[in-house]
């Protein structure tokens, strides 16, 4: 009786080991999957200053963020080629907060003539949010001509209530 039990026990232990091996294999496969996916798809997230200073190195694909300058936006209706310039904004969140929040950083950067600028080309539908003082987050690569060729273009307009100063009714 007790021998039977022991036999069952060892058999069960053997089976549990199979699960441990299966689990370890699965974990190894996932880690491998993550690493290979990271290798092909990780991008440096740079500011305009860093990118124009050549910090991207040889990376094929980078992500860069800047503020859209409204009067530089050109859109070709025939080819859907979109070009515009962005100006440098700090990449660090604490720095942005220290300067009074995203909305005011975007505003002052768009007016600063000394801020580093970057010319951007994108092909496709002109996004609704592309306008002066919007934050553009672009993924793509630098061309030899010094223009940034964006494959992905995301835009963000800070929600209004950070700035919210109401206009007054007549007293």
């Amino acid at each position: 009786m007790s021998e039977d039990l022991r036999a069952v026990n060892s058999r069960q232990r053997f089976r549990i080991n199979k699960f441990v091996i299966g689990g370890v294999l699965l974990l190894a496969a996932v880690v491998l999957l993550v690493i290979t996916s990271l290798k092909g798809n990780a991008q440096y997230y740079l500011t305009v200053e860093e990118l124009t200073a050549g910090k991207a190195g040889q990376s094929a694909s980078v992500r860069v963020s800047g503020v859209v300058l409204g009067d530089t936006i050109r859109y070709d209706q025939q080819t859907l080629d979109l070009t515009f310039s962005v100006a440098h904004i700090p990449g660090d969140n604490d720095e942005i907060e220290a300067l009074g929040g995203l909305a005011s950083v975007l505003h002052s950067a768009s007016l600063d003539p000394n801020a580093a600028r970057l010319r951007v080309k994108y092909s496709g539908v002109k996004p609704d949010l592309l306008k002066n003082e919007a934050q553009a987050i672009m993924t793509g690569s630098m061309g030899a001509d010094g223009v940034f060729y964006a494959e992905e273009l995301l835009l963000k307009c800070p929600s209004r209530y950070e700035e919210g100063v109401p206009e007054q009714a007549a007293p």
Partner: peptide, 10 residues
């Protein structure tokens, strides 16, 4: 250096 991953990674 900030490194991000996009949809292709996921």
């Amino acid at each position: 250096r900030k490194v991000t991953v996009g949809p292709p990674f996921y």
